[in-house]
């Protein structure tokens, strides 16, 4: 009994500690010179910005500058939007224009800014068993469907299958290729695999299966070292991939930290961050993972204000 009571008392004390700022004693935060309690900002981000470590990189710059602590939750765009709709985060970083538009129209999001872009690529085995190398993405998908359904050896497509931005893009390509996603593509056979995971995990799976998949170029480059797959289709207007950041509407969701959120989004569109985005990964991967939005608004088909106007 004594022991159990002692355990309980200890438990309450430990619980008390947990309720405090952080349960981490070790020396991972070497900036005690600033104010003791950095302000916290909750960000839901698409996995590609996280898995490539771009966000890590920008995060440390921003945190030092503003004495802030970014709490970054990495999830597919679908889940990120859900967090946003429930008001669980302050800022969202996603890449799915159509659903972003709906999100803003519903009054959940405000002040969208485009921060970067790159391209999607269709990744596949170097031997290219479906023979789609260099084709237009829509044609490549038609060929994949045809040969996959015919059961041709080695023709397998791994889909994100997780309502992410990349998954939305994949659906858009199927649509452009003349297929209805729910009836023609899903359940069309063993050749079409729905992974239900993030981009990194999906690439790893496609690699194991020696299959085709659709990836943003950034995540692919970041994982390239561990993969035997290569880009087979990388040209086509439909492959454009635009990343945005936006604030959760404080009028709809009370308690959202808009002030710090503004600072973060304005930081992302600043010359400093745009330069970081442009140069990120060049040394390590031989080419940039993302292109800066600044000056490229026409390429992305968005307004100039959306790229550079600071949020006031």
């Amino acid at each position: 009994m004594v022991i159990i009571t002692a355990l309980l008392v200890a438990g309450l004390m430990v619980a008390g500690c947990v309720s405090g700022e952080s349960p981490t004693a070790p020396s991972t935060t070497p900036t005690p010179t600033l104010a003791a309690n950095p302000e916290e900002l909750r960000i839901a981000t698409t996995t590609s910005l996280y898995d490539t470590k771009l966000l890590d990189h920008l995060q440390s710059v921003f945190e030092k500058k503003h004495n802030a602590k970014l709490l970054v939750v990495s999830a597919g765009t679908g889940k990120a939007l859900e967090y946003g709709q429930r008001g669980d985060v302050d800022v969202m970083m996603v890449h799915d224009r159509a659903r972003e538009d709906a999100f803003i129209a519903d009054g959940d999001g405000v002040n969208r800014r485009v921060i970067a872009y790159n391209y999607f690529v269709i990744i596949g085995p170097a031997s290219d068993p479906a023979g789609i190398k260099g084709k237009q993405p829509e044609v490549a998908f038609q060929t994949l469907m045809e040969k996959g359904k015919a059961g041709e050896a080695g023709v397998v497509f791994v889909s994100r299958g997780d309502a992410s931005g990349t998954h939305a893009k994949e659906k858009a390509i199927w649509k452009a290729a003349g297929f209805d996603y729910a009836t023609d593509v899903q359940n069309s056979g063993n050749w079409y695999v729905e992974a239900g995971s993030g981009m990194g995990a999906t690439l790893v799976m496609a690699n194991e299966k020696e299959a085709y998949t659709l990836s943003d170029i950034g995540t692919f480059l970041a994982y390239k070292g561990d993969l035997t797959l290569v880009p087979v289709v990388s040209k086509g207007d439909i492959l454009l991939n635009v990343y945005s950041a936006m604030l959760i509407n404080p009028e709809k969701h009370t308690g959202v930290d808009t002030e710090l959120g503004k600072k973060w989004v304005n930081f992302l569109t600043s010359d400093e961050a745009q330069h970081e985005i442009a140069s990120f990964g060049v040394v390590e991967y031989g080419e940039p993972l993302f292109f800066p939005a600044k000056g490229n608004w026409a390429v992305m088909g968005v307004s100039e204000a959306e790229v550079s106007a600071p949020i006031l």
Binding site: I4, A10, C17, V18, P23
Partner: peptide, 23 residues
């Protein structure tokens, strides 16, 4: 440091939950 930090956090969270649940 990161491995140690994650381990300590795990122990604290799960120990707290166990003790509260026991209580």
């Amino acid at each position: 440091p990161e491995v140690i930090e994650i381990s300590i956090r795990s122990i604290i969270i799960s120990l707290s939950a166990t003790l509260i649940a026991s209580f």
